[in-house]
């Protein structure tokens, strides 16, 4: 058991060591200030946040209904909305194009009536990221709601608490750990999004070229940029992992 296990650890850790070994430590600050890199980092700051906010706004109510609602086809709905988790992101991007693109099911109408066109815009990046990352939030929050149950809300009701007080003092505080965990997972997934974003929103520097896309492009022309951007994503991911671990939201210690 031990040799393959050690091999697995090496297999998972060595690439990271390879990345760190090639970081041009002395030039980092200069590398980070080139316009393309700065644009990419800026987009990777706002797009995952936008995707996460979109996911919270739509995903939390859905998670609530999946957890508490009693309607026919609940299992089917849950299956459908979590499909993007296993769907190849490129397929997701193509699907988004034919739904929200100028010629798409909904996009056609939006473009004709309001002149709105999502593809190749920064908001399009957020939409594509939300498509692949929202299921993480939905499933996490739904599990949190199910686990919390109605026990404490009932107790609060019998003590005279109205709906608003129950929501403010009981439901939201009880839900905040799973909401935080779900939002973090969602955000992390959106941060690394490549396939759906590239397909749906393209690769326009300053508009839709997020860090993962910039890494992918830079690797062919300016490998040093790729390494530095990768380092940034690596550090951010490590920080996310530490935050999640610290809050004991994932895994068992």
């Amino acid at each position: 058991m031990v040799p393959p296990a050690l091999l697995a650890v090496a297999f998972l850790v060595l690439p990271l060591a390879g990345l760190l070994a090639n970081v041009p430590w002395t030039d980092i600050s200069a590398q980070l200030r080139t316009p393309d890199v700065r644009n990419a980092l800026y987009l990777s700051l706002i797009c995952p946040i936008g995707a996460t906010l979109l996911s919270i706004a739509l995903g939390v109510p859905l998670a609530w209904l999946l957890a508490r609602g009693r309607f026919p086809g609940r299992g089917l709905v849950r299956g459908l909305v979590t499909l993007p988790m296993v769907l190849p992101p490129v397929v997701g991007g193509v699907a988004l194009l034919y739904a929200f693109g100028r010629g798409g099911l909904v996009g056609r109408w939006g473009y004709r009536e309001f002149g709105i066109s999502l593809p190749y815009t920064t908001f399009g990046v957020m939409v594509a990221s939300a498509f692949v990352s929202m299921p993480f939030l939905i499933l996490t929050v739904e599990a949190g709601i199910v686990q919390t149950g109605v026990r404490f809300e009932e107790a609060a009701e019998t003590l005279g608490a109205g709906r608003l007080m129950v929501l403010r003092r009981i439901t939201l505080p009880m839900l905040s750990p799973s909401l935080m965990a779900g939002a973090t997972l969602c955000w992390a997934r959106a941060l690394g999004e490549l396939g759906a974003t590239l397909t749906f929103a393209g690769n326009l520097s300053g508009t839709t070229q997020t860090t993962p896309l910039a890494v992918f492009i830079a690797l062919q022309t300016k490998p040093q940029d790729a390494v530095v951007l990768s380092l940034v994503l690596f550090v951010v991911s490590l920080a996310v992992l530490l935050v999640l671990r610290g809050r004991r939201m994932v895994g068992h210690q």
Binding site: F152, T158, M174
Partner: peptide
């Protein structure tokens, strides 16, 4: 509704608010 009844409940599992 429960909130407007003058009723106190001690639940079997107590249900003390954990937070």
């Amino acid at each position: 509704p429960p909130a407007q009844r003058s009723v106190g409940v001690m639940f079997q599992d107590y249900r003390l608010f954990p937070r």
